[in-house]
Design a protein around this nucleic acid. Structure first.
Length: 175
DNA sequence: AAGGGGGCCAACCGCAGCTTC
DNA sequence: CGAAGCTGCGGTTGGCCCCCT
């Protein structure tokens, strides 16, 4: 569609690559004043040489104040496994069940930890929580959460078990 | 001690759905 | 109602860092 042009690719030469502290500051200030959304106008209003898409991504994945950051807990890990077995690669949907975590973060985590691993089997503590979620979000007919992409993997039928998660990956802590 | 490989994370790209006109 | 624009999502890539040999 016109998506690409919609993000303003033709308009001017946007900066790419890692964000600087200065850019972060400008973006934070912009969101503080204008709120989230209207990313298209960020460049103009905030004085950033970034396109809206890049700004949104930076905010959502890194600058949002409610982000948890830090390593994924064993509980979160088991939750990810279970949710992925239900929804497949619908990372944003999974992320909604993990407050403070972003779809990008979960996606990265899953790819490095589970992608090439055999499917396990699930965990109990998580199941209770899931049943709770089931009442709210699972099977939701909310169109916003039920976007239909061509993601076939959502149909995977795996039962997950979780062996006690031993590796806390302490060494990763401060990077 | 140095080099290579793998893990991890941030960011970009392209596509599809939603909204507005 | 249809077209154009905007936003969000998932996939992929590139680079840095740490560990192992």
């Amino acid at each position: 569609m016109a998506g690409q042009l919609g993000w303003g690719i033709m308009e001017e030469s946007w900066r790419k690559g890692p964000w600087t502290a200065e850019e972060d500051k400008l973006l934070i200030e912009y969101v503080r004043l204008h709120g989230e959304g209207r990313w298209k106008s960020v460049a103009r209003l905030a004085g950033l040489k970034r396109n809206g898409k890049s700004c949104r991504l930076r905010w959502v994945n890194y600058l949002r104040p409610d982000l948890k950051r830090g390593q994924i807990t064993p509980y979160e890990e088991s939750l990810i496994l279970e949710l992925h077995s239900r929804w497949g690669n619908r990372w944003s949907t999974i992320a909604r069940s993990l407050p403070g975590r972003t779809d990008n973060e979960i996606k990265n985590y899953w790819r490095t930890h589970f992608k090439n691993k055999p499917k396990h089997v699930l965990v109990t503590p998580v199941k209770q929580k899931l049943e709770h979620l089931e009442g709210n979000d699972f099977n939701s007919s909310n169109p916003a959460t039920a976007r239909t992409r061509t993601s076939e993997s959502a149909t995977t039928t795996s039962v997950v078990t979780i062996e006690p998660i031993q590796h806390e990956k302490d060494h990763v802590v401060a990077r």
